[in-house]
Write a protein that binds this DNA or RNA. Sequence first.
DNA 1: AAGACGAAAGTGGTTGA
DNA 2: TCAACAACTTTCGTCTT
Length: 313
Amino acid sequence: MSNDIDNDGKKSNKIKECPECGSKSIITDFGKAEIYCADCGMIISESIIDLGPEWRAFDSTQTAAKTRTGAPMTYRIHDKGLSTVVSSGPGMNKLQKWQRRAHIANSSERSLIFALSEIDRMASALRLPVNIREQASMLYRKAMEKRLIRGRSIESITSALIYITCRQYGVSRTLEEVTKISRVEYKKISRVYRYLLREMNLKITLTSPVEYVPRFCSELNLGSEIRSNAIAIIKKTEEVGLTDGRLPIGIAAAAIYIATILNKEHRTQKQVSDVTGVTEVTIRNRYKEISKKFGGERQWFTDYILDKNKNGD
DNA sequence: AAGACGAAAGTGGTTGA
DNA sequence: TCAACAACTTTCGTCTT
């Protein structure tokens, strides 16, 4: 990564070329919170920090002048960031007291504050971009308006919303990953997740195995050729309906495994299993199904795989 | 010895009555 | 709410390289 100093004398994280292959085709995908190389597929950064104002200030006077306009409206602060703060000082105590009372008027508002801080905490832990946090916060307000929170823990709702928003934005975070940083168990989150989808009429498209490929390939130190081969295998597998009812992540794991064999950069089932969280048995099963279907097609399988199939059957 | 393979039993989610 | 079902995991013995 090239960390050079820019005109402001500040450290700039702008990445100009891929540290892996030196290519200058760097894609910044805010939706997926990833920066990756278009040529080799190397994920350079998974956490795009999109914080900070859109203006620049060159000295403290300008900072003061520009800050006066206030922060943009945000769903992530319980009053959308539009409140006035009474400054402290002699004679201000009474005013402050009243302001606090008016501010946090009732218990639902207080729970909203807690919910929004939970969303922020989890989104940070999952290194999600600001737009996903905004969307999750916005959905929480909607859920509150529809009185869907009653009888359910705030934490289960926020966890489910984080997962829902990730799915909506096509960010490949599994429910397991959300559970890990949540204080609520997997079962509860998944129940609330389905409940919210139903009650809020939210539409979520099924995750395609393709979405997992760049991240897993990067974790396995695999290059662009394997990445595109794995994606090609997945596309072909989807076409013939071999992915129906199967975990997308398992398909992705098997496709990557096959691609590493094809490209003579073999990774063991164990290695792929460790990175993807899918068991070796499932990788084997998917691999077997895919190779049975396409084993005859030379463009997909080298002699290595064809020979294996002959021995196996 | 490591990796791949596969059988068998157990687990948790979905679906339909 | 319950049973049936398919997908997946865990475990473990065997085979191959």
